[in-house]
Simulated scan of single mutants.
Amino acid sequence: MVADLGARLRQGVAIPAHPLALDEGKRLDLAAQRALTRYYADAGVDGFAVGVHTTQFALHADPGMFREVLTLAVGTVPDWDAVRIAGVVGDIPAAVREAELAAELGYDAVLLSPWGMADLTEDTLLARAAAVGEVLPAIGFYLQENVGGLRLSRHYWRALLDLPSTVAVKSAPFDRYRTVDVARTLLEHDRWADVALLTGNDDAIVHDLTTPITGLVGGEWRTLHVRGGLLGQWAVGARAAAGLLDRLRRERDSGRVGTDTLAIAPDLVEVNAAVFDVLGGFRGCVAGVNEVLRQQGLISSAACLDDRERLSPGQAALIAEVRKRFPDLLDEEFVAEHRDRWRA
């Protein structure tokens, strides 16, 4: 486990949301699942998040497979000093059980996903965060409504930040107004320097990582930066993601972000539009991540546990197109060179 999780997160982290590798029969593909973890370790990212949206929320309905997937992620590259995050879902009893399993397996923190709650309100989310925080440090999650999230007020974010177990917030509403709500609330909170703000806005990665949030709070001038990302988009192009974060951090800290760096943003948005199925209203976003990895030969199938999660018509062709247009952003050469070793 990471010795000082808060400090590690505040240094800036690139964390991919780890996919679930299935065969065509929707059985866990052990070789492919391990290959993905080896890919991320060799890519130079800072850790992984398992049991999150990209790992398929339906995984949580199978406790045996859930345990196996979490175990594989921590055991495949045991000497990797990775930040290990487990997604937890459901109401308080279920989420606490999953957090206890994550703690047993050596995870550092849990990501509080809203999926599977019988009564999804700000009050129930806060009660669950407090209960789970008794087990492991927690990362708050602003999930976009298209994939099961809830619009959350500044009151909610203040209350979540009041919990000492909250070590970070992943802001992923895919909405600039709501992203500013989270950032401004953190900036004005007493724990503003202790809680890491991470982007989950796969459509605005460069924007989030380069734009400071500033303000005068109680006579003190404060500047807040997004410290990294926990992203489904970074489940593909992981090596490029680690390099991008390092480049953005260096340029941002120097006070000069180059126009050639900013020009990466629209390219990355185009890649994400194909992978996340923007034309299909994000219905194929999880399958789209899998399809990139399938086309690259890392996994054998883009299948998902939930039959409703599938590629939209024409999405595979769009993914093939962005792979040709933006090979560096998708690690095409790196994956081709190492995939056989990772799958061995």
Rank of each mutant, 00 (worst) to 15 (best):
G106N: 11
V74C: 10
E98G: 02
L72Y: 04
V74M: 06
E68M: 10
A94M: 14
G106M: 03
V96Y: 09
R97Q: 15
D108V: 06
G87V: 03
I85H: 02
D91K: 10
G75T: 15
P93F: 13
G75M: 02
D108A: 08
V96N: 01
V83K: 08
G87Q: 00
R67K: 12
P78F: 07
G90R: 00
G87Y: 00
I85N: 01
V74L: 11
W80N: 08
A109G: 11
A82L: 09
I92G: 03
E104N: 07
A99H: 00
D81M: 02
D79K: 11
D79E: 14
R67S: 03
E68Q: 14
P93G: 03
L105P: 07
G87F: 06
A86S: 14
A82M: 08
A99V: 05
Y107G: 13
A73G: 07
T76C: 08
G75W: 10
T71Y: 02
L70E: 07
L72Q: 05
V77C: 13
I85A: 04
E98P: 00
R67A: 13
F66L: 15
D81I: 09
A99Q: 08
L105I: 07
I92R: 14
Y107D: 04
L112G: 06
G87E: 09
A95K: 02
A94D: 12
L70M: 15
V69P: 02
L111M: 13
V74A: 02
R67W: 04
Y107L: 12
D91R: 12
D79V: 09
G90D: 03
D91I: 10
L72H: 01
R67Q: 11
V110C: 14
E104G: 11
I85R: 05
I92D: 03
G87N: 02
V88W: 07
L105H: 07
A99R: 06
T71S: 15
G75H: 11
Y107P: 01
V83C: 08
V89F: 03
G90V: 10
D91L: 12
T71I: 05
I92Y: 09
A103M: 10
G106Q: 12
A73I: 06
V110K: 08
V89C: 10
I85V: 14
E98N: 06
A102H: 06
A73N: 09
L101E: 08
F66Q: 05
L112Y: 01
A94C: 05
E100V: 09
I85Y: 09
L101N: 05
T71K: 14
A86R: 09
Y107T: 10
I85T: 00
G90L: 06
R67Y: 05
R67F: 04
L112M: 15
L112S: 01
A102N: 05
A102V: 09
R67N: 04
L101C: 06
L112C: 05
A99G: 09
G106E: 11
E98M: 15
V88Y: 03
A82H: 03
V88Q: 04
A109H: 06
A82N: 03
G75R: 14
D81P: 01
L70H: 08
R97Y: 07
T76Y: 07
E68T: 14
A95Y: 05
V88G: 03
V77P: 01
E100L: 12
L111T: 00
A82Q: 01
A102Y: 07
I92H: 06
D81C: 03
L105D: 07
D108K: 12
D81Q: 14
V83I: 15
E98K: 06
F66P: 00
R97G: 11
P93V: 11
L101V: 10
